[in-house]
Simulated scan of single mutants.
Amino acid sequence: MKPIKHLYLHFIDGQRLALRFPQQAEDPVEVARGIRKQLESPCLSIEVDGDLLLIPRSSIKYLQITPAPLSLPDITVVGAELID
């Protein structure tokens, strides 16, 4: 069984969408490539329960993927902590 990942979409209007899905690829480089392709697209495309969700990136404030993929984009700041 593939590891489970969680995606939290935080929208500009304050709403949040939480999703759970199996890891999409084994190869960390392939995972990073998939993330890059999604970020370059005008819409985030996600299959949910047999339906296709197309979410305009312009409505998304930020995305949170947990746990983080093993391979991160080159420009990623690592080791950060959220503080109040």
Rank of each mutant, 00 (worst) to 15 (best):
M1H: 06
M1R: 10
K2S: 13
K2M: 11
K2F: 11
P3G: 06
I4Q: 12
I4E: 13
I4Y: 02
K5D: 07
L7S: 00
Y8I: 13
Y8E: 15
L9P: 02
H10W: 07
F11D: 09
F11W: 10
F11R: 13
I12N: 11
I12T: 14
I12W: 01
I12D: 10
D13E: 10
G14E: 13
G14V: 10
G14A: 10
Q15N: 15
Q15L: 09
R16K: 14
R16I: 09
L17F: 09
L17H: 09
A18T: 13
L19N: 05
R20E: 15
F21M: 03
F21C: 05
P22H: 02
P22S: 06
P22L: 00
P22Y: 05
P22V: 01
Q23F: 01
Q24P: 02
A25M: 11
A25Y: 08
A25F: 03
E26R: 08
E26S: 12
E26I: 04
P28C: 03
V29C: 04
V29F: 06
V29N: 09
E30Y: 02
A32H: 05
G34I: 01
G34F: 00
I35S: 05
I35E: 11
R36G: 04
K37S: 14
K37I: 06
K37T: 11
Q38L: 12
L39G: 04
L39Y: 00
L39K: 05
E40C: 03
S41T: 09
P42I: 01
P42W: 00
P42Y: 00
S45T: 15
S45I: 11
S45A: 14
S45Q: 15
I46E: 01
E47W: 06
E47S: 14
E47Y: 02
V48H: 08
V48C: 11
D49V: 04
D49C: 04
D51K: 14
D51H: 14
D51E: 13
D51Q: 15
D51C: 10
L52S: 12
L52M: 13
L53H: 10
L53M: 14
L53F: 13
I55R: 01
I55V: 15
P56C: 01
P56S: 05
P56Q: 03
P56K: 05
R57K: 10
S58V: 08
S58G: 05
K61L: 14
Q64E: 15
Q64P: 00
I65N: 00
I65V: 15
T66G: 00
P67D: 07
P67M: 09
P67R: 10
A68L: 05
A68D: 07
P69R: 04
P69N: 07
P69F: 08
P69M: 00
P69A: 08
L70Q: 11
L70N: 09
S71K: 13
P73A: 04
P73S: 07
D74V: 06
T76R: 07
T76M: 06
V77K: 12
A80V: 08
A80K: 09
A80N: 07
E81L: 10
E81R: 13
E81W: 03
E81F: 07
L82K: 14
L82I: 12
I83H: 09
I83K: 07
D84M: 03
